[in-house]
Design a protein around this nucleic acid. Sequence first.
DNA 1: GGACGGTATGCTGTAGGCAGTCGACGAAAA
DNA 2: TTTTCGTCGACTGCCTACAGCATACCGTCC
Lengths: 247, 247
Amino acid sequence: MLLSDQAGQTAATKIPRPATLRESVIEAIQELIVSGQLKPGQHLVESELAELLGVSRQPVREALQQLSGEGWVDLHPGQGAFVHVPTLEEADQLLAVRTLLETESARLAAGHAGEDGVRQLRSLCARGIAAVQSDDVDSAVAINSELHALVTALSGNAVLAELASQVARRVRWYHTPVARQRGMASWDEHTALIDAIEAGDEQRAAKIMREHTEHTRASYMEQRESEPVEPAPKPVRRRRPRTPQAG
Amino acid sequence: MLLSDQAGQTAATKIPRPATLRESVIEAIQELIVSGQLKPGQHLVESELAELLGVSRQPVREALQQLSGEGWVDLHPGQGAFVHVPTLEEADQLLAVRTLLETESARLAAGHAGEDGVRQLRSLCARGIAAVQSDDVDSAVAINSELHALVTALSGNAVLAELASQVARRVRWYHTPVARQRGMASWDEHTALIDAIEAGDEQRAAKIMREHTEHTRASYMEQRESEPVEPAPKPVRRRRPRTPQAG
DNA sequence: GGACGGTATGCTGTAGGCAGTCGACGAAAA
DNA sequence: TTTTCGTCGACTGCCTACAGCATACCGTCC
C-alpha cells in the first residue's frame, strides 16, 4: 500500500504545519478588528502592531496588504493603513452581492449536490439549531457561515465558491454584532433550503436562498438604521505626542 | 473659489504621483503573464524578478502576494510563487461568474444610469466599433473591457463593480488570445444593450447581457476545446543549473 | 489675530542580510 | 537494478537598517 493511498483515506492528510507568521498576523488583526479593539478609521501603525504581536514589520506589512485586498483595511500610499470604515450604503451593497452569489450557488447546488452533500448539510443544520437553542450565538454564527460555504462548495463552481467566501467573510464582520436578532427563523429557512436542494428543485432552492439572504439584509439594515453612526473624524495619520513616556 | 471646488471639476484631480514600486511591479508582472513571457506553471523566483525589474525583493514579494489574491499566481508556502495554470474547467466557471455579475450589473444599470452615463456608453461603443473596423484587436479588447466596466459602474453598486472588475481582469487573460474570433457581432450586442439601458428596461438589459456574455463564453470554450492542452508538468521548484553563466 | 514658512518628528517605502527549509543530486545498501 | 539515506545548493521567510516624505508644531510676519 502506498502512503498516498493511505493518506487519502484519513481526514487530516496534512499535518498542521506552523503557519507562516504572515497568516497568523492576518488572523490576529482580523480578530482585533472584529472584536472592536481596532476601531474603524483607526490608523494602523506597522511598528506598533509589530511590537504588539511580537514580530517584525515585514509580516505585518504583508498582512495589511492582504487585508486591504479583502476590504478590511484601506491602504493610503505614503500614509499607511487604516481600519476600513463600514458605511451603511456599502453594507447594503455587500449584502446585495451576497444575495446574488449565494442565490446562484443554491440553484447550482440543487442541480449538483449528491446524497453525501445533503447529509453534510443536514448535519450542519442540526448543529446550528442546537447552538441557537442553547443560546450560543458565536457558534451559531460560525455554523451559519459553514453552512453557506458548503452550499457554495456544492455548487460545483469553485470560482463562484471562492468569491462567495470572500464576500461572506466581509459580511460576517458586519453581521456578527446583529446576529442575535434573527435566531431561529433563519434555521427554519436553512432546513427548507436543504429540502429543495435534496429534491433537486433549482427554482425553489434559488427562491428560498434569495429570500433568506434578503431577510438577513433587511434585519441588518433595520438594526443599523436605528443607531446613529458617529461622523467618524477623517482618517488622519495619528501623531504620537512627543515622547510622552520618557521623562 | 476654494481649491477643492476647482479640483473637483477637473478630470485629473490627483497629480500622477509616482506610484509605489509595489504597484508598478504588480502591473509589470501582470503584463509579463498576459504577454506570455511568464508561462503558466512557471516558478517565479523573487530574486530573479527583482533583478529583472531593477528593484529589491521586497516589492516583488508584496506584488506576488497581491497577485495571488487576484488569482494570477499560486503561492505555495515555503516553495514560492508559480504562475497560475488556467484550466478549461476554471475558465468555464470564471466566465459563468462573469455572466452572473454582469447580468446583474446591466439590470441595475438600466434602473440607475442617467443621460450622462448613456452618453459615455455610446461614445465607448462608437470607438469600439471603429477599432474593429480598422482591425485593431488590441484596442477593441481594451475598449470592450472599458465598456463592461462602465456598465458595472453605472449599476450604482460599488462592491459589485469592484468584484466584476476583478473577475473581468482575469477573464481578459483567457480571453485576449481568442478575441479575434467574435468581432463585429459583439458590438451589435453592445449597441442593443445600451438601448435597453437607455430605455430603463431592466429585464431586457439583463437578458441581452446574459446572452452576450454567454456568446463570449461559448466562443471561448469552442476555440479551446479544439486545442489539446499540454499536461503541464507539475509545478515543481526549478533548480538552476549550477552556475551556468559564470564562465 | 490670522496666515505663512521653517523645523522637527515619526512613519512609510525600500534595501540588504541571515537563518531555516525544501528539493535535487549522488553515494551506499539491499 | 532499485531503494534509501546523506549532503549540498538555492530559495523563501523573516529581521534589521536606512532614506524619503508627510504631517504636526511653532515662531515670525502681515
